[in-house]
């Protein structure tokens, strides 16, 4: 079974993946004077920009919560997603030197990119409590219900990263398109505005299809429910998104395995 094999491989190559991402982080934070501050400052910048340009101009429905807190909660997982996408899609291309000289499971480069993005996400969440407190909001125990959601977002990132990184080996110019697509995807996901705004425009079956095709919508909304409103995730939507993500992941891994033997040839 494709996914079982995938999980086994992911487990076996964890050490190398962690070492690679450790190297990545070390190198990055060694070079940048402000180090961790960059990962920390980026989400705050987004919150500021969203508040000024979206919330001020078109009043966004936040159901009684301050907009910066509302936005920040969804920026945390979205930042991870965007980061993982840009980092992992080029994971194989960027490691050509290693790829051509050292034999190791090729998936490792993708996994290490995701591990790096997870670390960055944790750092980016550091300022969240400060923002919450400064607006007089509360923390909720529902935060712990995000654990399955984190697994889902890692699986989504892994699926896209495996697919894109292997395709990119053969058609390298596609990477120039990626930042644009990621930006557009953000507006198709409840990051700037809430999921309710999207839901009211779609009929029930179409909305289910939307949640299946864009599982990041469920992830972002679950973060918001837990961190801002203290609610558990919508389990039925989480179910739909998880099922579709499993399919995407199986497909992406199949594509990756099909293309993998040729990586070193076109390196």
């Amino acid at each position: 079974m494709n996914l079982v094999e995938f999980a086994r491989l992911a487990w076996r190559s964890r050490l190398l993946a962690f070492t690679l991402s450790e190297r990545e982080l070390r190198v990055r934070y060694k070079q940048a004077l402000l180090g961790m501050a960059w990962a920390f400052a980026a989400p705050l910048g987004y919150v500021l920009v969203f508040t000024v340009f979206f919330d001020r101009t078109a009043k966004i429905e936040t159901f009684g919560r301050p907009y910066p807190v509302f936005a920040y909660a969804a920026i945390i997982p979205w930042g991870f997603f965007a980061q993982a996408l840009s980092r992992c899609s080029t994971a194989i291309v960027d490691n050509l030197v290693l790829l051509n000289k050292v034999s190791c499971p090729r998936e490792t480069f993708v996994f290490s990119g995701i591990a790096t993005a997870v670390v960055d996400m944790l750092v980016s969440a550091v300022a969240f409590p400060i923002v919450v407190l400064s607006f007089g909001e509360h923390f909720y125990a529902a935060t712990f219900l995000l654990i399955p959601v984190i697994l889902l977002q890692v699986a989504i990132a892994a699926a896209l990263a495996l697919f894109l990184s292997s395709i990119l080996m053969y058609v390298r110019d596609v990477r120039h398109l990626l930042p644009l697509v990621t930006q557009l995807l953000m507006f198709a996901t409840p990051v700037v505005w809430g999921q309710a705004a999207i839901r009211q425009r779609l009929s029930e079956p179409v909305f289910d299809l939307y949640v299946a095709l864009n599982p990041m919508a469920t992830v972002c909304e679950s973060y918001r429910r837990a961190l801002v409103y203290g609610q558990a995730p919508d389990w039925s939507l989480l179910g739909i998104s998880s099922a579709s993500t499993a399919l995407f992941l199986a497909f992406a891994y199949w594509v990756f395995k099909r293309l993998e033997p040729g990586f070193a040839d076109v390196a």
Binding site: R23, R26, V27, V102
Partner: peptide, 13 residues
């Protein structure tokens, strides 16, 4: 495999 010894070595570490 020692295809090229310096390949796995990262200059910044």
């Amino acid at each position: 495999a020692l295809i090229e010894v310096r390949a796995g070595i990262h200059p910044d570490l």
